[in-house]
Each structure stands twice: as structure tokens, then as C-alpha cells.
Amino acid sequence: MPNNRLTQLFREKTGNLLNVYFTAGYPKLEDTVTILEELEASGADLVEIGMPFSDPLADGPTIQASNMVALDNGMSLKVLLKQLEGVREKVTLPIILMGYLNPVMQYGFERFCEDAARVGVDGLILPDLPFAEYEEEYKPILEKHGLSLIFLITPQTSDTRIRQIDNLTNSFIYMVSSASTTGSQVQTNDAQQAYFSRVRNLGLKNPLLIGFGISDKNSFELACQTAHGAIIGSAFIKALQNAAEVRENVRSFLKSIKSEPTVQA
């Protein structure tokens, strides 16, 4: 089992974890490290850096559009890993790279893991990597490089499958709040509450972070009452579109989420 910044974070902090997603190379090619620094300074607990892809089929319009802009800006895995060189002298928060399998395959899976680990990445989210393939082919490679792989679950995921995922995972489980692509407006309803309590009652070993549709202080705090924390993606991408300078956009968005002390989960 890897011992990285992710596993360490979850040992030290068990509630109100704020995980922020942004697309590498967006809004500008060179913003990646700036955004990372500002996120850490403004109180994010961990980050997911999106690796842009031409065909992001689990993503809604906001993240799709940011992927297109990032690719037009010239972002690629090579460029991203180059930008992340030396990043560990600047930030200490856990870094997860999130993206689709195809670009990683073309880079070379093993070489990618090696290079990512070397620059200080702690985990990967590859939503279209099925866990049967992961177990057979990819797990040893990730483990060799000390990287955690994070899996998603949805309201349709069966208890049995959630337990299997829990067994394979050693950082956290990404709990998709409702059947949707990223960025959808999620209404809290009975079915969703039933899903949350069903999962909570499974007594999983890994912490749960809720993602998809978490957009502001209110939805973040609600999610934190159910889970160990939450993931904000599309809403943050939208905040980066504001007219102000990028650091200021990051700072004011995080302030809006964390303005007052939150209730302990």
C-alpha cells in the first residue's frame, strides 16, 4: 500500500476535506503551477489536475469547454509533467492527475506513472479504466511508483461492487452525487439521501469524497455532513473565467467556500 501525501492527509484530517479540480492549461497554458500555489495558500486540502482530452465523455459542457481551450493552448501530458517539475519545492498538498485513459496509453502507462511519481504526483483518477483491467494489468505498475488509483461510485453502483472498489483502493472513494456528467445542477432529494446513507452504512475502510454538482459553500457543507469532504470542479472552472487576475479568482472562490468555520461532520 502506497504511503504518499494522500494517505497521510486522510490519516491526519477526517472531515471537511476540500478537493478542487481544475483543467491543466486553462485558462492559460502557464497557469497550472500558479493555480496550485494559490489553492494551497487559500486552504484547499488536495487537488485534481485535469489532463485535457479531445473526447471527455463523462464531462458536462463547462469542463468540456475548458478541455478544448487547454488543448488549443498547447497542453499535453508532456507539457504538464514538465510544468510540474519542481512543484514539490512550492506546494505540499496532495496532487491527483485526472483524465481519460487514451492519452496516458499513448504516453506509455508505465513511463507516465514513473514521470508523474517523480515530479510528486500522489494519485490518478482514470474514469474509463475498468477495475478488472486495473487489477490484472495496471495495479502492479501504480504500486511500484507509489501512486494511488481513485475509483468512482454512483447511485447505481451495487453494494457488492462498492465493497470490491473499497478493497482495491487505498486513498479515498470518489462518490458521484447523482447519475450525471460533471457540472450538472444536483438537487438533494430522498433518493440521494438514501444513496448516501446506504454507502455510509457499508462501513468502508476508505474515506468518501462527494463530487459532481458541488458548487458553493452551501452544497459543500451539505456534502461534508454526509461524507469526509467534497470535490468542486465545474464551479471552480467557471470562477476562473472571471475578469480578475488568476490568483485573485482562485482566492476569492475559495474564500466564498470557506468563509466561516464549517460544522464538523
Binding site: 479531445s54 473526447d55 508532456k78 481519460y100 487514451n102 492519452p103 496509453m105
Partner: peptide
């Protein structure tokens, strides 16, 4: 095409060196 993933299938597909589908 080179081997890659498109629409949920591992198959031959036309793509850039960086794995973006063309």
C-alpha cells in the same frame, strides 16, 4: 490508426501523438 480507446473500446483509432482523437 494506432491502438487506443474510443467510445469505450480498445481499438485502432486515428489520433495525434499525444493521444487526442483526430
Amino acid at each position: 490508426g494506432k491502438t487506443g480507446i474510443i467510445h469505450g473500446s480498445k481499438t485502432l483509432l486515428m489520433q495525434t501523438e499525444d493521444g487526442q482523437i483526430t
